[in-house]
Design a protein around this nucleic acid. Structure first.
Lengths: 194, 194
DNA sequence: ACCATGGCAATACACTTGCACTGTAAAAAC
DNA sequence: GTTTTTACAGTGCAAGTGTATTGCCATGGT
């Protein structure tokens, strides 16, 4: 075995280029040549790590979800349940240009679910996982007395996340200010106190 | 001037084909040949009515918004304000396959805002128009006593619509049942009563 | 020292793409 | 009847597409 390189790292470089292109030009712009140019590598290298364009696009979704999951866990593991809930609900709203890239790409992948069953599966899994996680935070907050008892945690979690994503879509489109969205979401979270 | 045909009708036929393709394969699938085949016409005809692919895609957005607006007005003009609000909030959630086509295409256009400023403009205009309309319904319902006074109508309207669109995205992705979404939205609307 | 193999770059290929450019039929205008 | 303009259908083309193939270089194992 010659010349050992970090496969995961190489794939990540390529996938980051995919994200950048999706954010700027959508999936229509994701051609092998465009990806190679964006990453500053050759088309051959892209092909070496991905056997087809479809697989590349799918791995882009997989890695985005995985990084989001890991990043969220790392950022919030030491926070109290209610603050973790807040972070989870805020997450969809892009406050910085770099973060906007992530949320735009995520919205693009959601839209792409219609013609790629593999991506659709990842999207629905992410949806249900997020709801369960948020519901768990509500449960935890109730257990430690931060929140009073009330409606079904899963229903509340779903509503908060849906609202957040609705705001996010408008922030991305430019018809809503990110800070206004966060403030509105905070009001909804505070309302859980009854 | 020879052979008079209804331009608006011809364009609509073409645009309907665009919608069908977007719903099935996304904008990547919208090629002049695919559109012509879907509409059962020749590529030449498509070119006769649209000078470029970009213009065709944009007109698809324009007509979708216009038809949605007119259809909503016609369906709800004789309803009381609160019911008009309910209809507006329910609108994003697809309950039938045909209606799902519309909402999927709308989500696709929202995602496409990132690389087409003309579409981005139409999307933001539609957003603000919907909020204003919903806020107006809340105002009307308060004036006639159906709803008590409360928070800022525009903020409430924005929240309801955002939540609705968040649910809609999940219904489209397949991670939420349409009826559950409608019930949840009704609960939010009923909560306006205080 | 050898060489097999992984890690690419480069090229080739069949195909698709948007669009321009023809040609033509038919009907309104005169 | 002639002319003129609209409404297309068909064809052609240069550019771009995903992918298969080829070749080369560096490096690990022996």
């Amino acid at each position: 075995m010659p010349r050992i390189v970090d496969h995961a790292e190489r794939r990540r470089e390529i996938v980051v280029a995919v994200w950048a292109i999706v954010a700027r030009r959508g999936f229509e712009g994701v051609t092998l040549r465009a990806v190679a140019a964006e990453a500053g590598i050759s088309v051959g290298r892209v092909q070496h790590y991905y056997s087809s364009r479809t697989e590349l696009v799918r791995d882009g979704c997989r890695r985005m979800l995985e990084e989001a999951r890991a990043g969220f866990a790392a950022r919030t593991e030491s926070l109290p349940p209610l603050e973790r809930l807040r972070a989870l609900v805020h997450r969809a709203v892009p406050t910085t240009p770099e973060w906007a890239l992530g949320t735009i790409v995520w919205q693009a992948y959601q839209a792409k679910s219609v013609d790629d069953v593999a991506i659709a599966g990842m999207v629905t899994d992410a949806h249900t996982a997020a709801v369960q996680q948020a519901a768990g935070f509500i449960d935890d907050a109730r257990r430690d007395g931060t929140l009073p008892d009330g409606d079904d945690p899963a229903a509340l979690a779903l509503r908060l996340l849906a609202t957040s994503e609705g705001y996010a879509a408008r922030v991305i489109a430019g018809s809503l200010d990110a800070d206004d969205a966060l403030r509105a979401l905070d009001r909804d979270i505070d309302a859980l106190r009854g």
